[in-house]
Design a protein around this nucleic acid. Structure first.
Lengths: 139, 139
DNA sequence: ATCTCAAATAGGAATCATTCCGTTTTACAA
DNA sequence: TTGTAAAACGGAATGATTCCTATTTGAGAT
C-alpha cells in the first residue's frame, strides 16, 4: 500500500481528506519499518503544535481498520507500519531501529494438522534481531 | 516446572520462602494456561486482603527471571504461565480461556537461511483460537 | 462563492497496567 | 532470641491509550 492508494481508499469509503491525514501517510511512507504512536505524535506535533492525542490515535485506528496500516505489540507498546499486504507474509523486525524485512514463509501449513480439533483464528510469527545497518553501528 | 521444583530453586538461590510466594506457585500450578497479573492479584487479594501490587509484580518478575514462569504480551497486557521448558516449543493459546497446547514445531530452522546477514536474537510464534472446551460453550 | 452539517480536531481529564519509593514487617541465620 | 537484609505495605507516579465535550473544518448542495 502506498500513499496514493491509501488516499483513494479513504475517499472511496467516504472519509474526509484532511492535511493531518495526508501527513500521517507521509510519515509512514518514508520507510519499511514499525513506528510507535509516540513517534508519530512527535512528528505531527512539529507540524501542528498542540495537536491532540485523540487525532493521532483515532487516525491510527482508522487506518488500521481500513488495512492501510498493520500493527504489532512490541515491548508492551503498539507499533504501526504501512501495510505491505500483497500476500500473506511475516517479518524480521530490527530491535534497534524497527526496520523490517519480509519473510516469505509461514509455519501454519504444517501446524494445522498438529492442532486437530483446536479452532484456529489467527497466529503471530516474528523474528527479532539486528539488521545489517544496526550491526555495523553496534560494533 | 512444578511447585516443588520451583521452591527448591528459590531456596538454592537464597531467596526467602514466604507464604505469599508459595501461594503464587499454587495459583499457577492449577492449569496449563496464561494468566494476567490482575487475575493473580485478585486471587492473592482474596487470601491476603490489602496485598500490594508491588508484591505481585515483584514476584512475577522474580519468577520470570528465574525461569519459573514464562510470559507473553497478549491483548496489550502481559500474561504469565508456569514454564514448561523441557525443550524449545511454542503454544496454541485459547483466546477465550487462555489455556494452552504445546506445538512441537519451530519455524526457525527454515528461516535462518532466508535471513542471511541479519543477526537473529529471538522470535515469537503463537497460534490463537478456541480450544475444544470453549468451542462447545460458544455453540 | 457561500451555506450547511456531519465528520474531524482540540484540550485535557480519565483509565488501566505497571513501576517506584519510603516505611514497616518478617524469614531465617547466628 | 535477636539482628538484619529481604520482603511486603500503602499509595503515589508514570506512560500508553481512551474518553468526553466544545469547537472547527472539509466537501457536497445551493
Amino acid at each position: 500500500m502506498n500513499k496514493n492508494q491509501a488516499i483513494q481508499l479513504l475517499k472511496q469509503r467516504g472519509y474526509k481528506m484532511t492535511k493531518r491525514r495526508k501527513d500521517i501517510l507521509t510519515f509512514f511512507s518514508r520507510e519499511d519499518k514499525y513506528y510507535t504512536a509516540k513517534s508519530l505524535y512527535e512528528y505531527m506535533e512539529s507540524i501542528y503544535p498542540g495537536i491532540s492525542f485523540d487525532t493521532v490515535y483515532r487516525n491510527l485506528h482508522l487506518y488500521h481498520d481500513l488495512g492501510i496500516l498493520e500493527s504489532t505489540d512490541l515491548y508492551a507498546e503498539k507499533h504501526f507500519r504501512m501495510n505491505c499486504g500483497d500476500q500473506h507474509h511475516h517479518h524480521f523486525i530490527c530491535s534497534k531501529c524497527g526496520r523490517t524485512k519480509k519473510i516469505n514463509l509461514c509455519p501454519m501449513d504444517e501446524v494445522h494438522e498438529l492442532l486437530g480439533t483446536y479452532q484456529i483464528e489467527g497466529h503471530k510469527f516474528e523474528v527479532y534481531g539486528l539488521c545489517p545497518d544496526c550491526q555495523v553501528l553496534a560494533s
